[in-house]
């Protein structure tokens, strides 16, 4: 995988906000990530997608300077995460997967503490806390003890501390995990707002979320990057086949046979229903067989109830990419 990214080194573009080269990290004898390389440009929102244990958290912990990598080099805003860790940490806001909060403190007290730790100027701090509380919609909870907040609000406090010092880079590890759907929507909106000005790296295993929030997706599996592109392009490039879904009133076997006879059809799968059946027809790339299919159904004397062409979702890509290695 590493060779594919080597060209970045010679790139004439302005240096990327985050540069990751040949990153490898071992926990004991097993690598959590191996030979991971990527760039994140300023102002970009990058999504890490992968199942649990793929190496997302490990990568993020290295980016934030929490732990040094076994091998490889990471620079953020031109600073090395190992050699110039403090400079990196000043420029990075981090929301770990388990939101780290002092449960006995009030929201404001916590933000005040985090702000002074992060080196926000004492004069600026109260103003900035006000802004952040506004941004994360925590206005009614300034004096609430964090331990009494619901999970969703704790998440917001977590994000508030991450953006408090106006970092250039925001690293969010599973920012919407374990909170209720309404709060998920709000959290996503907040991330979208932040992504307009800041460089954001977020991880998730929820695919629609990543395709909604990110301009670019890295799919990481078993410690390797298996794909990297925009959500749209990823969908296109992997789309080797066209899928057509149709609902037909008619017997399964003859319909399937008729569909198979059409030139260009590679596969037909049928899902029986009560008096109508769903068929999924896969055709070779670039062929639109809807005319032929509808003709075949009509000619057979069956009822065509609906027909739909579906492009492959990220979810499918994800499954394909992540299951391929195991084959």
């Amino acid at each position: 995988m590493a060779t594919e990214y080597r060209e970045y080194g010679a790139s004439t573009n302005p240096p990327a906000m985050i540069q990751v080269r040949d990153l490898t990290h071992y926990y004991g004898p097993r690598p959590a990530i191996e030979g991971v390389s990527f760039d994140v440009q300023k102002g970009e929102v990058l999504g890490f997608l992968g199942p649990n244990g793929a190496g997302k958290t490990t990568t993020m912990r290295i980016l934030t300077g929490f732990m040094p990598p076994t091998q490889g080099k990471v620079t953020i805003a031109g600073f090395d995460v190992v050699e110039q860790s403090l400079e990196v940490r000043k420029r990075v806001g981090y929301l770990p997967e388990t939101v780290p909060l002092y449960t006995e403190m009030t929201v404001t007290g916590y933000l005040k503490y985090m702000g002074s730790l992060r080196g926000v100027a004492p004069k600026r701090l109260p103003v900035r806390i006000g802004e952040v509380i506004e941004l994360c919609r925590l206005g009614d909870y300034r004096k609430t003890i964090i331990g009494k907040l619901s999970k969703g609000f704790r998440q917001r406090v977590g994000i508030a501390q991450a953006i408090l010092h106006e970092p250039e880079v925001l690293v969010l590890d599973e920012p919407t995990i374990g909170i209720d759907p309404i709060q998920v929507v709000e959290t996503r909106r907040l991330i979208q707002d932040l992504g307009r000005e800041q460089t954001v790296v977020l991880s998730s295993h929820i695919l629609p979320e990543v395709s909604m929030l990110c301009q670019r997706v890295l799919i990481i599996h078993q410690g390797h990057i298996v794909a990297e592109d925009t959500p749209q392009r990823l969908a296109q490039s992997l789309q080797g086949v066209e899928r057509i879904e149709l609902e037909v009133r008619g017997p399964i076997a003859p319909v399937t046979a008729a569909l198979r006879r059409i030139n260009g059809v590679t596969e037909v799968t049928a899902t029986p229903g009560r008096n109508r059946h769903t068929f999924v027809v896969q055709a070779r790339h670039g062929q639109d067989l809807r005319d032929e299919i509808s003709k075949a159904i009509i000619d057979g004397g069956w009822g065509l109830l609906s027909m739909q062409m579906s492009t492959m979702s990220l979810e499918d890509i994800f499954l394909r990419l992540t299951t391929k290695e195991e084959l």
């Binding site: 912990r61 934030t64 300077g65 929490f66 403090l86 400079e87 940490r89 000043k90 990075v92 981090y94 770990p96 388990t98 939101v99 780290p100 909060l101 002092y102 449960t103 985090m114 730790l117 992060r118 080196g119 501390q161």
Partner: peptide, 14 residues
């Protein structure tokens, strides 16, 4: 225990 050590170690504090 709280996991806040991760914050402490990623804050610009030696």
């Amino acid at each position: 225990k709280l996991g806040t050590v991760e914050l402490l170690l990623t804050a610009p504090v030696r």
